Every structure is written in structure tokens, then in C-alpha cells.
Simulated assay, not measured.
Amino acid sequence: MGGPRAGRAHDDPELRAVIQRYVTPGRRYLKLGGALLRLEEAERARYAQETGRAAGEITPQELDVLLAGGWRERKTAAWLIAVSRRTEYRGRLGELLLASEGPYAGAAYCVALASFGAEADAALLVAYLERYLRRPDLAYDQAFAFATLLRLDAWSGRSDATRFLRPGGLWQRWLGGPPDRSYNLSGYQDALDRLCAFVRSAAASAGA
């Protein structure tokens, strides 16, 4: 599943050109995410420079094209939006997260919202969690989104996550399933810290 241009690269010259420039080089759509954490420091620094250049070069029109595509295009766009700090896309990323139309891109939306770090970003995460923690039958990006909200609380001094942590609250009920679930939220938060550090490094290399 995806946007109106998902799966149409073969007959959509504009989409194909943007994919070839920003999504597929070096399989960027796969590397941006958890794979970054497995890179050696020097390789990660080089990749941050490369990502920073791409984020500085991509135009709003090209970002819109990617956000109308499939998960590869949307995931890549979210990372480039984060690095270039284009907060005008906050609402669009929130809409895509809430819609959860396909796999693999949700964590990228969370990283972008975390990198913006404002109260408005926390509100988008709260809206997502209010909807999907009520669905124990679905295991989408609830754990990563919740870890992101916890991190934003820690950084800002807010307590937006508190409502979900009450005994018998939505987080506990979602974990109870069925099926039963267990997540290392500290591990997710550590990963988020490192991914946001990459965003900052890439942004600095691009002068964003």
C-alpha cells in the first residue's frame, strides 16, 4: 500500500527520476534507519555528509513526489525532511504516521518528529498512540512511537506519555494483547538518540 504514485515508477517519468536521484543510490532507502547504527564511525560520518548533501539539494516538489509514493520513497523523504529540518512537513508526516498505510516508514516519521522536538510533534505522536494502542490486534510502530514520546518528554520536561503509563492504561493493555508483547523501551530510546545524532551530523555537514 502507499500513495497515489506507489508502484508507478515504470510509467511515471517524474517519480522514476526522483527515485533514481534520491532513493536508490547506495540503497539509501534501506540504509537510513537501524542499519546506520551498524556502520563504523568513519563510514557513518561519510554517509552523514552524503545524506546532508541530498537533503540540501532535494526540492519541495521532489519531496512531495516521494511522499506520494510507496514506503521506500516515503521513508527516504522523511529522513531528508528531518536532516533539512523542513518543519513545514510536520503535519504531512503526522498524517502518514496516523494512516499507517504500509510497512517500514513509520519509524522514519518518528525520527523526523523527534528531530523537530516541539510540542506539536509530541501531539502527533499522542494522536497516533491514542488510536493504535487501542488495537492490540495490530503491531505497527506503537513501541517506537511510544519510545519517541518518552524521549521528547525527557528532552522537554513535558509529561505527554504519562496518560499511557497509568496502571491498566493503554500501553499496558496493548502489551497484554492478545498476543502478549514485551519491548525494551530503553533500547528503542537509545536507538532514537543515536539516529537523531546522525540527523544532526548530516544537517551540520550540509549547513542546515
Rank of each mutant, 00 (worst) to 15 (best):
G2L: 10
G3L: 13
R8C: 05
V18Q: 04
V18E: 05
I19K: 14
V23I: 07
P25Y: 10
R27G: 06
R28C: 08
G33M: 09
G34Y: 11
L36T: 05
A42Q: 05
E43Q: 11
E43M: 08
R44A: 15
R44S: 12
R46E: 14
A48Q: 09
Q49L: 10
Q49G: 12
T51S: 15
G52N: 00
G52T: 08
I58F: 07
I58V: 13
E62Y: 04
G70A: 05
R74S: 10
R74E: 11
A77I: 04
S84M: 03
E88M: 05
E88F: 07
Y89L: 10
R92D: 01
E95V: 07
E95T: 08
L96D: 04
L97M: 08
L97I: 10
L98K: 10
G102D: 15
P103H: 06
Y104F: 02
Y109I: 00
A114W: 02
F116S: 04
E119F: 06
A120K: 15
D121W: 11
A122I: 01
L124R: 13
L124F: 07
Y128C: 03
Y128K: 08
L133K: 01
L133C: 06
R135D: 03
P136F: 12
D137P: 04
L138T: 14
Y140C: 03
Y140R: 13
A143S: 15
F144M: 14
A147M: 10
R151K: 11
L152K: 05
D153H: 09
D153M: 08
A154K: 09
S156P: 13
S156C: 11
G157W: 04
R158N: 04
R163W: 14
R163F: 12
L165D: 06
G169Y: 02
Q172P: 09
R173L: 13
W174N: 08
L175T: 10
G176E: 13
D180F: 02
S182W: 08
Y188K: 11
Y188S: 11
L192S: 03
D193I: 06
L195K: 11
C196R: 12
C196L: 13
F198A: 02
R200A: 12
S201I: 01
A202I: 00
A203F: 07
A203G: 15
A208E: 00
